[in-house]
Simulated scan of single mutants.
Amino acid sequence: MDYDPVKDRLGRFFWTTPTRTKAFYRTLDAVFLRSWYVRRTLRRLVGARAGRPVRVLDAGTGFGQYAYWLVRTFPNVEVVAADVKDDYLRRAEAFVAQTPYAGRVTFERADLTQPLPHEEAFDLALSVDVMEHIEDDRAVFRNVRDALVPGGHLVVNTPSDQGGSGVSGAGEESFIGEHVRDGYAVDDLVEKLETAGLRVTDTDYTYGPVGSAAWRLLVKWPITMLNRSPLLTPLVGAYYLGAGPVGLALNAVDLRRDNDTGTGLLVTAQKPPRPTR
């Protein structure tokens, strides 16, 4: 199934006013369990800097919800939100321009497989559900490493090879047609990051059995309905009245579990600090 047409239809509706865009961001943060894990990790990493300025690269910003969340949550953060899609960037930039945070987010068109014009500029880089869309992932990791200051961190969230992208068996196709890989094995992702010159500090499985059930309830089934016909949109709204509270409760449970396996991966890596004399 191609996911982008559904995203684009939703975007055209929610980007019409700042109020709708904020509601859209809140919905994405609630429905997608990955956001719960990513925001928890960002709180830890930004909080460790004890109020010092933090420059963040949102590598593959998409709708821009993480860039907005960062500057709204942390007064010491500035973000460069990069993406290859001009229309997404224009919409996100137009929205942020109408908020009190306009001066703290810069939007840039960037192909992450090409060198970034920000050598050693960022304390933190973020890549949320981006790498499964990019064939040359090794180039991306090298470029992000070059953009980090020594000691800076990269947070990568992506589907795993344990059923990520809705693939549970050999021969099954990804639920998302735009993916170039169904998911990463932990060892594969760690090897690629470390070969790029980054040291992996944390690996966590997200979307364990409970979270995977929430994903089917909150994401897969509604998106499948929307993909069949936009006319089903009112039905999806009614569906969430019943399914939403159950799915959100499952998300909360998964976040508190130490999953032995899961359909998602959240990996944190660090660029080695400069040697001290």
Rank of each mutant, 00 (worst) to 15 (best):
T41P: 12
A59W: 02
P222S: 11
V80F: 02
G237D: 12
G247M: 10
A269G: 08
P275E: 11
R43G: 05
P53H: 01
T263D: 11
L193R: 05
E194M: 03
R181P: 01
N143H: 05
P5D: 08
N259P: 02
E173Y: 09
P100G: 09
Y68K: 03
E78T: 15
Y3W: 15
A252E: 12
V210C: 13
P230H: 10
L154K: 07
L250A: 08
R34S: 14
A97N: 06
L226S: 15
N143Q: 05
A213D: 13
V140N: 12
V149M: 06
A139E: 06
H118P: 01
V140A: 08
S168Y: 14
L70W: 13
R181W: 06
A125W: 04
E178C: 04
E191A: 09
V186G: 03
A92G: 14
R145S: 06
P115A: 03
R104L: 07
T73M: 10
G11E: 07
E173T: 11
R55P: 02
G244Q: 13
L250E: 09
G237C: 15
D8A: 12
V96M: 00
S212E: 11
T224V: 02
F63R: 04
V46R: 00
S174M: 04
V71E: 10
T263Y: 13
P230A: 15
R216A: 08
D129L: 09
R39P: 05
R104C: 09
W215S: 10
L198M: 09
D260L: 04
I223R: 00
G11P: 11
